[in-house]
Design a protein around this nucleic acid. Structure first.
Length: 291
DNA sequence: GATACGTGGAA
DNA sequence: TTTCCAAGTAT
């Protein structure tokens, strides 16, 4: 057994002794449910996803159910989860699954990657968690755990997909069922124990072997993710206001109503242009509506 | 590789 | 109050 898989086994054993009871971990949870949950979890906390996920799956229990409504209905039902292009992409993915995959979410990573809005993380998460396939699942939690335990760094730094996947691959046992526990357990560990701000190292199953702990918790000095721009006054905020208005209306909204949402007309026009370009909004005459 | 993309809660 | 952070993806 390599040192890497020894760490993996510690994580699997810790996870197996107890973890949170999340909807997507329930027995019988569908692959479609897993796909929807992974879309919603992209940059959105678990606590906000859970209620939205349950409403979504009640309304659209299979991909074809979603594919059979206009994409704007997906954007509307997305409500305030943020990054509404995810709703559009999920609708596109559902359509592709209904049309090209017999209404069954594919289990193959490459087939998943071909779906809109599905990237390296989501494709492998669905393959691993919905289908039990042995493949490294790397998200922000996993990258932080690996940076600390394996490399002795306090933070993960920028993502490097190929390197990150290889590093996680080295932790996976050969047995797919066991590998799945390592994938789920590493994410769980990063989210509940090896947290970004105040890690609870006294509860960590890796404390005895953690490189960061052994080094005395050196402050992270490497490259950091660029600071996100201020949201107040940003184009993002204006796009959000426009979309909120459209979601709240069952009929097309006159542009003069939209014009009242934001004082800076040039910025508002830029935001609307962006929404049109992204396909989140359609224009018909002097009215705007969801697609 | 850098940047844009929502929203809300916690420190 | 400001900053950080959250199961990322597309360009």
């Amino acid at each position: 057994m390599t040192p890497g898989t020894a760490i993996g086994e510690r994580i699997a054993a810790w996870y197996a002794t107890g973890h949170r009871d999340l909807p997507w971990r329930r027995p019988g949870f569908t692959a479609w449910g897993t796909l929807v949950s992974e879309f919603m979890l992209q940059q959105t906390p678990v606590s906000r996803v859970i209620p939205a996920l349950e409403r979504w799956l009640t309304r659209w229990p299979t991909p074809a159910d979603l594919a059979n409504v206009p994409p704007g209905e997906a954007v509307r039902a997305w409500e305030r989860l943020g990054y509404p292009r995810r709703a559009l992409n999920l609708h596109g993915a559902a359509t592709a699954i209904a049309e090209r995959h017999g209404n069954e979410v594919p289990s193959d990573v490459d087939a998943l990657l071909a779906l809109p809005g599905v990237g390296p993380y989501t494709a492998r998460a669905v393959a691993a968690f919905a289908y039990g396939i042995r493949t490294p699942v790397v998200d922000t939690n996993v990258r932080r755990v690996l940076a600390r335990a394996m490399r002795g760094q306090g933070a993960a730094g920028p993502a490097r997909t190929a390197v990150d996947l290889a590093e996680m691959e080295a932790l996976l046992p050969a047995d797919p069922a066991r590998a799945r526990l390592v994938n789920a357990g590493t994410m769980e560990l990063g989210q509940t124990v090896c947290t970004a701000r105040t890690p609870r190292c006294d509860e960590c199953p890796l404390a005895a072997v953690c490189a960061w702990r052994a080094a005395g918790y050196p402050r992270y000095a490497g490259p950091r993710a660029p600071v996100q721009k201020r949201y107040e006054g940003s184009d993002r905020q204006v796009r959000g206001l426009v979309l909120r208005e459209l979601r709240g209306s069952d009929i097309p909204v006159p542009v003069e109503v939209i014009a009242g949402l934001w004082a800076d007309a040039a910025q508002l026009a830029r935001a609307v242009e962006g929404l049109l370009r992204d396909g989140l909004v359609e224009r018909e005459g002097d009215e705007l509506r969801l697609p």
